[in-house]
Amino acid sequence: MTAHVLIVRFSSIGDIVMTTPVIRAVKRQCNGGDVEVHFLTKRGYLPLLAANPCIDRLHAIERKVGEVLPQLRSIPFDWVVDLHNNPRSFQVRRGLGCPAQVVRKGTARRWLNIHLGLDVLPPGHMVDRFMATVAPLGIQNDGLGLDFFLRPEDEVDPELLPRRHREQGYVAWVIGGQHGGKLYPAKWVAQACRELGQPVVLLGGPEDRVRGAQIAAQGGEGVFDACGATSFNQAAALVRDAVCVVSNDTGLMHVAAAFKKRVVSLWGATVPAFGMSPYLPGEGSLVLEAQCPGRPYSKHGGKLPLRAPYTCWDGLEPAKVVAAVQGG
């Protein structure tokens, strides 16, 4: 008899991408592969999973679980895999009343590390914690890393890029980030672009247009600013086609790992020890951390040190980033 499994993760981009090893493993291993995999998230994140062949059905909410609970109750779920573990996901578990496996995120330990400086962070990557959640179901990590699938409409018109970028290849530099403490300083990005001396494509959302224009104006003729010019999935297509990806701690960093790109990840207010570093990225990938004392400053990078702006990036000057990119 076909099993039915509901995987729950509401946000955000990087976390949803990091659930993909669980999605794939459940689809291939649960009940001998005779399983329907359902996934519940917020509506705005549906494009991230729309092309994933391991998901049989997507469900989404705008704000409240009640929007989708009647629909979910009509499906005979055997298990809920809760990879969010928050009040909303608890409502899903309670509303369905079927057996559930719930991720242990280590939130309390992370708080103690950030606010008291205690070295009590949970070991391992967040993907490993997600996989541990389904281990009681007999699901094992297949070691294949992250997935990210694109639809035909996600492909980018090659003419979007300058001829030099198309012919020589380019470095994709992800300048965006949801929180200020994750944003590598614009003037340093521009300086690194000048010193690289090779084509660079700047990637970010509409909120990054001002920073992108500033960097492009100061970064030299090899810089092409694509911030706000593409959808997220189109930006992912540009990441896929890059020769190397430089990224803040943000969603496209995880997409780059899914495409097995060589990733140079930059860490300021947050730290990779949270378990959020690129998971099984391409060969030659590097994790570069600032050396400012007191890191990490917050869980998501929203809190900066009390000194001058950008001091959370001390010790990670442009020359180090350039050397890391060119070292590949």
Rank of each mutant, 00 (worst) to 15 (best):
P199N: 12
D157I: 03
V156R: 03
C193N: 05
R209D: 00
W111M: 11
R211A: 15
L121N: 12
L160I: 11
I114T: 13
Q214L: 15
T133E: 12
A217D: 14
V174C: 15
L203Y: 14
R166T: 06
T133P: 12
Q198G: 02
R163L: 08
A108M: 06
I175C: 05
K105D: 03
R110L: 13
L146Y: 09
E155R: 10
I175G: 01
V174Q: 15
R109S: 08
R211V: 10
T133S: 11
Q140G: 02
R211H: 08
D154G: 06
L144E: 15
L161C: 04
G176P: 11
G143M: 11
G220K: 05
L183F: 02
L112S: 02
G220N: 09
D119W: 09
V103P: 14
R194N: 14
C193L: 06
V171E: 00
N141W: 12
E155C: 02
T107G: 00
R151H: 02
E155A: 13
R166D: 08
E159P: 00
A213C: 03
L146Q: 05
G205A: 14
L144F: 00
G212I: 05
R163G: 01
F149E: 05
I175H: 01
M126D: 10
L137H: 13
V134I: 14
A213V: 00
R211C: 01
G204T: 04
Y184G: 03
I139P: 03
E159S: 12
I215G: 01
D147C: 10
G117S: 02
L150D: 13
Q191V: 00
Y170K: 07
I114R: 05
V189Q: 14
G212P: 05
G220A: 07
